[in-house]
């Protein structure tokens, strides 16, 4: 009896608030670990330093300095270039893998997906270290190339260069591209592909007319992962990049730790954040367009 009376007694506001309360941990998490730190970074970025001491101020000198110092905007350019190259390379490499797992693997699908994720079970530092063994002047690749007589001297550009950074990043991000692409391709009905072939589209045209456009949501999500992570990546360039040509994240770290110029580093971090947000905003637009078209 009393239970039956309890239900209508609940106030409408409370009823609306209850499901929203489930979001509370997320909201708190975002505030404590994202909004507040970003606000602090932004705050520091308009301060000044004098003799390694922070002086509260409100100046945009730090931002202007980023573009006035060639070393810095060159690092930024290298970061954007590397991230873009890694993104494109991952897309090209991930597509056949994702397509095979989604459409051709049959009962091996589960095992192959686990294999794609497996590298995540090992620390990134160890995985990057393993690449040093492969790419070094006396590493596996150079030894094999010299034994086969492909080169006389070891290829030194393989390690401690933007090339090795790119190789390391492609290796690290490939699973991040395969998974969303796999999800998108799984959603392409075999019947759509058959309908295209049946209507006299060659396999190549079927790919460009049906498979590729319907993979767009996965392509965009994968690209966001690769580009955004690649832009701010620190570990891989630090371990494989050699330190002659720095990426933006390394310059930021340098400002904070070596030069102790926190405002300058903070300003660079804000610039990086704005770039990431721009990439995200752009991709959201694409995703909305792509998903609007795939909803059947």
């Amino acid at each position: 009896m009393s239970a039956a009376h309890d239900i209508p007694r609940r106030r409408p506001l409370l009823r609306a608030a209850l499901p929203a309360a489930g979001l509370l941990p997320l909201v708190l998490w975002q505030i404590v670990f994202f909004v507040v730190p970003v606000a602090l970074i932004f705050g520091v970025s308009v301060w000044r330093t004098q003799s390694y001491r922070l002086i509260p101020a409100f100046t945009f000198d730090n931002y202007i300095a980023i573009f006035a110092r060639p070393a810095i905007w060159r690092a930024l350019l290298l970061s954007v270039e590397t991230a873009a190259f890694v993104t494109v390379a991952c897309a090209v490499l991930a597509f056949p893998v994702a397509y095979f797992i989604a459409k051709k693997a049959g009962r091996w699908r589960g095992l192959l997906l686990v294999a794609v994720i497996a590298p995540f079970w090992i620390s990134i530092v160890m995985r990057v270290a393993a690449w040093r063994l492969l790419l070094g002047e006396r590493g596996v690749i150079n030894q094999v190339a010299m034994t086969l007589g492909l080169t006389d001297a070891p290829m030194s550009f393989l390690l401690y260069s933007p090339v090795s950074t790119a190789i390391g990043l492609i290796y690290a991000y490939l699973p991040l591209y395969v998974l969303p692409l796999y999800a998108a391709i799984s959603n392409i009905h075999d019947n759509w592909i058959e309908a295209a072939l049946d209507l006299n589209a060659s396999p190549a045209r079927t790919f460009f007319e049906v498979i590729l456009p319907l993979s767009a949501p996965g392509l965009v999500v994968g690209a966001v992962f690769c580009f955004v992570f690649g832009l701010g990546e620190f570990v891989t360039p630090a371990l494989l990049g050699g330190g002659k040509q720095l990426m933006f994240s390394q310059v930021i770290q340098d400002e904070f730790q070596r030069r102790l110029d926190w405002p300058s580093g903070a300003a660079m971090a804000v610039v990086l954040l704005v770039l990431v947000f721009a990439a995200l905003a752009l991709s959201m637009k694409w995703i909305r367009r792509a998903s609007g078209e795939t909803g059947l």
């Binding site: 058959e194 309908a195 049946d198 209507l199 589209a201 079927t206 319907l214 078209e293 795939t294 909803g295």
Partner: peptide, 20 residues
């Protein structure tokens, strides 16, 4: 002849319309 080389056209059971 492959399906795309034949002068046939199919109406699929679930229609298979291109969603995009």
């Amino acid at each position: 002849a492959a399906p795309y080389e034949r002068d046939t056209a199919m109406v699929f059971q679930d229609y298979a319309l291109f969603p995009h």
